[in-house]
Computed example of a mutant assay.
Amino acid sequence: MTVKAPAIHDPAHWDSVSANYAAEADRMTGRYAQAAWELAALPRDARVLDVATGAGALLLAALRDGADAVGIDFSPGMVAIAQARAAEISSGERALVMDGQRLDFPPDSFDAAFSIFGVFMFPDPAAGFAEMARVLRPGGLAVVAVWENPGGAGPAQLFAQTAQRLFPDQPVPLPVSRLFNSPALLDAAFAEAGLRPTTVHRVSYAWPAPPIDWFREHAKLAYGWSPVWQLLDDAQRTVFAEAAAALAADLPPEGITSTALIGMARKPE
């Protein structure tokens, strides 16, 4: 019997939300990608890899600054969007369908490897960290962004609160099997991959509160990757979205503040 992969590990799920992700979620995650790029302070002509590029936020930041950058993602839908966006800045094949746990690049290929809210969600995140380390040249920089809140960021936090209210007797399962949501845990993951941790930056932004209807219309986008969502039928999902919308009515005007940890490490010379 074939066991269906959890949504968070299923390219088809990300394909199904790719257009909405690019239009909605990327506006938030893109701010952290830009911060990570600026914090890295790489030379203009650096050779850069973006692992789990999604709609290409980090990839685009790198290309705009003159880097020789390529992004990979296991979702063809996301890759198509990232490639179309990249083509407006730079020629060539800039986004590729590829598994970040088995990168199709030789060792020592890149000056820097980034993963902005990607590698920590892999089925085997240790393999993702190890692959980033493998393809870095000696002295190269690894940059990984994770959410400090284990339930995610922005609207995902509100949907997690909804799950806790609707199912008070049930533990809300986390979307990932291994957490990296502290500087110590992130540094340990780098060290496990043979990298030398240097700095972990805390970066916070407010996710502006959208209209209440947003929570009804975009529940799958914001929470479809969660094990909770996968256990609900269509009628239950409608009830869930309505409950989240009711919670959203009490959001402050500035919205939901979310903090990312942006960790950096070097490959030994």
Rank of each mutant, 00 (worst) to 15 (best):
A12H: 09
H13A: 07
D15Q: 05
V17T: 10
S18R: 01
S18V: 00
N20R: 05
N20D: 13
Y21P: 00
A22I: 00
A23K: 05
D26E: 13
M28I: 12
T29P: 01
A33Q: 01
A36I: 09
A36Y: 13
W37C: 08
E38R: 15
L39P: 02
D45V: 05
R47D: 10
R47C: 08
V48M: 10
L49G: 02
V51D: 05
A52M: 14
T53Q: 05
G54F: 06
G54C: 08
A57Y: 08
L58N: 01
A61V: 00
L63C: 08
L63K: 09
L63T: 13
R64T: 13
A67T: 02
G71W: 06
I72E: 03
D73Q: 10
D73C: 05
F74C: 02
P76Q: 10
G77E: 04
M78F: 11
M78C: 02
V79G: 02
A80E: 08
A82G: 02
A86V: 07
A86P: 04
E88C: 06
I89W: 10
S91D: 14
G92I: 06
A95K: 05
A95P: 10
L96Y: 04
V97H: 09
M98Q: 15
D99S: 13
G100K: 11
L103N: 02
P107M: 05
D108T: 11
S109N: 06
A112H: 12
F117C: 09
M121A: 15
A126R: 15
A127D: 11
A130H: 13
R134Y: 14
R134L: 14
L136I: 13
R137T: 07
R137P: 04
R137H: 05
R137L: 03
P138N: 13
G139M: 14
G140W: 04
L141P: 03
A142W: 13
A142Q: 12
